[in-house]
């Protein structure tokens, strides 16, 4: 692990396109940006290293200014599951840092990463001093909560793989591009990664994609995914929800 100074990457974070959250930090006060800049430490991680681990006491937040990272969860006695892949521009470890609870997931780098680290105490005092920043952070958290509830079906073992895959594809649609033929998006993950996300094998994912293609629900060319029949995809995701009656919520 080596350290280097850089400038501009915090600016990048606030202006980044990859923040789907509608440029949450867009009109953040210049002082706040400056404060962020002064607090953060740049850390470089090689591919395959761990930024933080599930269950660890929170040390602070990590701004992923370059690279991609896997967010992984290991339920007791189960295989590790990918929760999602964090892209350049995301802030990791946010809720644990604020609540003081252990990190919910493990962050592992998929590519060499450049990360801006801000210590917990520094971050908390920044939030107290800058209500506007705090407000944006709250918005970001609210959104993450909703997203994590939407992720529940992916963990339901009574759901067939095709329904989970449909759920996952639907969750990507917001980031897609509307065309005459349907919604076009870039497949952000390999089949192997998708398998680890919905808890099945690579072969099953490939088979489910084949089935969707045969039914003319999607079209797949390289890494470009075209959703031809959105309604059908929704019904694949839903029909199974009916049979399992959201049993996920029962495991109190």
């Amino acid at each position: 692990m080596s350290r280097a100074r850089d400038s501009g990457s915090v600016e990048y974070f606030f202006n980044s396109q990859s923040l789907r959250e509608d440029q949450l930090f867009q009109d953040m006060l210049p002082e706040a940006v400056k404060a962020f800049e002064a607090m953060k430490q740049i850390v470089l991680y090689p591919e395959g290293s761990m930024i933080f681990a599930e269950g660890q006491r929170p040390r602070g937040v990590y701004l992923l200014s370059q690279g991609r990272a896997n967010l992984v969860m290991r339920p007791k006695g189960k295989r590790a599951r990918i929760i999602r892949i964090a892209e350049q521009g995301e802030m990791l470890g946010l809720s644990a840092t604020i609540s003081g609870e252990p990190y919910e997931v493990t962050a592992e780098t998929l590519t060499p990463c450049q990360v801006g680290f801000i210590k917990r105490d520094d971050f908390l005092s920044l939030l107290r001093e800058q209500p506007e920043t705090c407000f944006r952070v709250a918005q970001l958290l609210g959104q993450s909560i909703h997203e994590s509830y939407e992720r529940f079906p992916l963990f339901d073992k009574t759901l067939p793989a095709s329904a989970k895959l449909a759920h996952l594809i639907l969750s990507w649609c917001a980031g897609g591009e509307e065309t005459d033929e349907g919604i076009r998006l870039r497949l952000p993950l390999t089949h192997e990664q998708i398998a680890r996300m919905i808890g099945t094998s690579r072969e099953t994912v490939t088979r489910a994609f084949g089935e969707f293609r045969r039914k003319q629900i999607i079209q797949l060319e390289g890494a470009t995914l075209l959703i031809l029949n959105l309604a059908e995809l929704e019904s694949v995701a839903k029909s199974c929800q009916r049979s399992q009656k959201l049993s996920c919520l029962r495991n109190f």
Partner: peptide, 12 residues
């Protein structure tokens, strides 16, 4: 958010 993850962890 933490509670949501506790729930997710118990799902499987």
């Amino acid at each position: 958010y933490h509670t949501a993850y506790v729930q997710i962890r118990s799902l499987g």
